[in-house]
Simulated scan of single mutants.
Amino acid sequence: MRSLVEAQISRIKRCIGERLLTQELASQEGEGVIIANLLNRWNAFGKPVCVKNA
């Protein structure tokens, strides 16, 4: 289970980045809200279903 969580965090960091891009506190708060909404939407898709075709 832990490896799945770490893999998800790694994917998030690769897509979004490890740091906030803005300097001001108010802008960072807004950026955090945007990232949280993006992650919630991303996780709403669920896990992919793999089917073996052979």
Rank of each mutant, 00 (worst) to 15 (best):
M1V: 00
M1I: 04
R2W: 00
R2I: 00
S3A: 04
L4A: 15
L4H: 03
L4M: 09
V5Y: 10
V5D: 05
E6T: 08
E6C: 02
A7Q: 09
A7D: 12
I9A: 12
I9N: 08
I9Y: 04
S10T: 09
S10M: 11
R11A: 13
R11P: 01
K13C: 03
K13I: 13
K13Q: 12
R14H: 05
R14I: 04
C15K: 11
C15H: 09
I16V: 15
I16Y: 13
I16F: 13
I16G: 00
G17C: 04
G17P: 05
E18S: 14
R19V: 06
R19S: 11
R19F: 01
L21W: 11
L21F: 04
L21C: 12
L21M: 14
L21Y: 13
T22S: 15
T22C: 09
Q23R: 15
E24R: 15
E24T: 13
E24H: 15
L25G: 05
L25P: 02
A26F: 10
A26S: 14
S27H: 12
S27N: 13
Q28V: 05
E29D: 13
E29R: 12
E29P: 01
G30N: 15
E31T: 12
E31F: 06
G32A: 08
G32W: 09
G32H: 06
G32E: 11
G32I: 09
V33L: 13
V33A: 14
I34G: 05
I34Y: 14
A36Y: 14
A36P: 00
A36K: 12
N37Y: 10
N37K: 15
N37W: 09
L38M: 14
L38G: 08
L38F: 15
R41A: 08
R41L: 04
R41Q: 03
W42H: 00
W42S: 01
W42V: 02
W42P: 00
W42L: 08
N43Q: 08
N43C: 08
N43I: 05
A44D: 04
F45K: 02
F45N: 03
G46I: 04
G46R: 03
G46P: 00
K47N: 11
K47H: 05
P48A: 06
P48N: 01
V49A: 02
C50M: 13
C50D: 05
V51T: 06
V51Q: 01
K52T: 03
N53H: 11
N53M: 11
A54L: 09
